[in-house]
Design a protein around this nucleic acid. Structure first.
Lengths: 341, 341
DNA sequence: AGAAGAGTTGTGAACGACCACAATGCTGTT
DNA sequence: AACAGCATTGTGGTCGTTCACAACTCTTCT
């Protein structure tokens, strides 16, 4: 029953049909200049007729370079797919590269190692790592040292190139915005504690409060989900002096919005809420959410550019791209009003 | 400046170090039974010492099989990354396969063709296509005919295996739910018109209305985004007899919720709203959204299983997996009340 | 006309692994 | 002691492509 699918046509089949040597076909394939136009046409015709497509494995084998970009990323329930957000595949393809993905369900040294091995086996030309936890940056140490590498949203330093949004600046702007509206202090619901973004947003928020001479209350612990935001929101609703919340991301802000509403607190009249991320939805929360917009597109583009430069250069090197996030003011924030209860 | 990164160690380097032939190393690599335990250990030690990792390109070349699964999917702004949702990479890896992705920014015959060529070049062992538009199913015709293939959320038939959620059943349940609550009729905001889901959800909704002897109003046109839902919501709010809406997805439902609220209509007291998809957020909309939950996990698992069966079998064949969605009743739906205005 | 030189095409080797088969070592039986 | 038979290891060929170099074919100039 198991039919042998015939191997696809090779460069030799094309050569035979076109009555030239395999090398000439190879030259046509690689756009070498010194091929007579008529020969080129003849070969092209044979290629089309056979439906020939070059075998990238053979090519990789002989050249030692693979035109595959490896992507290591998370595959966890709480979080959306990261690589599509950054448009990684599209950009790679524009430069003639394939993308092979390795995902992590947990971020441990062992799982990082497994992902790296998986990509190493494919002799990828370079790697993009989108694993925004501190553990990931450590694990980078185990990588083949010369291999081109860019970390998206990872810790800068250690000779590794990074492309990231300035999380601290974003969190600072969000907090300042609330302070400018006259809020005495700003409460914070943080994301998963081992994420880079969580730490950076906390310090941006702390920094803004400190600069205004306010004390930072203890952040509430969330896990990026709306559910955790909801629970934090129920907690916050018990605090009489609550007037402003900075949520670690928009999903949690959504949960907070619901919890406050259930507890009879109006946003923004009683409490102002700011989120972080901004996709297509937050502008249509009820009320539309003031949030910090991250420019994933630019980060993705620069990351790929940096990686390709390293590949062209034949070596890894440190470089740092930082994108400035933008505060998007919508209806979930307003000046404090005198008294709340 | 351009340092030549040395090639990684090959099977020969390992053989030399371990004082055996390369074939013995190969046997160790592939777990052949007839290798003396002491030899195996010696080889393994050499492998570890050199940090050797097999070259998948060489392996592919000689065996003719590639252990790469190709994924063709969309890369458009309105839509989240699809493959992570289905857990494609994780499952593939569990079975020893790599995943290479090709994305489409527009679904045209040409772009499909380009994606297919890209994967063909890598001699993928099989393909998963997650492009839920009708055009995609057509374009499948251009694929190498024997190549194992599974369509996720694609049109069944034509000898192609498919794994999908029963969209019609989901839409029917959603609509029946509203009718059971006493609503006279149910308005619908559809998604992008060329998507399979859009058509199926429309016919499920129509079917339920017809079965109840109601006439289906004309669906409003959305594009899956909250923004388009918001605009449709503003339109719906002008209709005096509006009491129930079935939104094509949750994002649009979010926009509808906001629009209705801005127009002074309460959900669910004045209008009931049902969505479709169910991720982590809709349970925390205000009010929490009644919606239809799709089991992406099972669909993804079955899709990969089907694909691997085809690969083992050495041929493509038709098979059909349908997952039954589940209505999740939350607070956005309630029985009609006598009079609205 | 002949030679230099550019343009064009062909040949042999190599990349790293697996497969089929051959060769060797070891065990046990008669 | 010799041989069958199994376990273990080694050898040559191959996959499809590129690279380095050799060889051939035209021009063009002297």
């Amino acid at each position: 029953m198991s039919a042998e699918r015939p191997r696809s046509p090779s460069i030799n089949d094309v050569a035979e049909l076109a009555n030239v040597s395999y090398q000439t076909v190879s030259r046509v394939l690689n756009n070498h200049p010194n091929v007579k136009a008529s020969t080129r046409a003849k070969v092209q015709a044979a290629i089309d007729q056979l439906g020939y497509s070059p075998n990238s494995a053979a090519r990789t084998l002989v050249t030692g370079r693979s035109r595959i970009l490896g992507v290591i990323t998370l595959d966890v329930d709480n979080v959306d797919g990261l690589p599509p957000m950054y448009g990684i595949e599209r950009r790679a393809r524009d430069h003639g590269y394939f993308v092979s993905t390795a995902t992590l369900d947990r971020v441990t040294r062992a799982s990082m190692r497994a992902a790296v091995d998986q990509l190493a086996e494919q002799r990828v030309a370079g790697m993009v790592v989108i694993v925004p936890t501190e553990a990931a940056s450590d694990a980078m140490a185990s990588l083949p040292p010369g291999l081109p590498l860019v970390l998206i949203e990872g810790e800068p330093g250690r000779g590794i190139a990074t492309a990231a949004v300035d999380q601290q600046a974003g969190a600072r702007r969000a907090t300042e915005h609330l302070l400018e509206l006259g809020h005495e202090t700003v409460f914070h619901v943080r994301g998963l504690s081992d994420w880079m973004q969580t730490q950076d947003r906390i310090s941006g928020w702390r920094g803004a409060l400190a600069a205004a001479g306010r004390e930072a209350p203890m952040p509430l612990a969330g896990d990026w989900t709306a559910r955790s935001g909801y629970e934090a929101g129920l907690m916050l609703a018990r605090i009489p002096e609550l007037t402003a919340v900075f949520a670690g991301n928009d999903d949690m802000a959504l949960g907070i919005l619901l919890a406050l509403s259930e507890r009879g607190l109006r946003v923004p009249e009683d409490v102002s809420v700011v989120g972080f991320d901004d996709g297509t939805a937050p502008g249509y929360y009820n009320p539309p959410l003031t949030t910090v917009r991250q420019d994933f597109t630019t980060v993705g583009r620069r990351a790929i550019e940096m990686l390709l430069e390293q590949i062209a250069h034949g070596t890894r090197y440190e470089e740092r791209f930082v994108s400035e996030p933008e505060l998007i003011v919508r209806k979930s924030t307003a000046p404090v009003r005198a008294q709340r209860r």
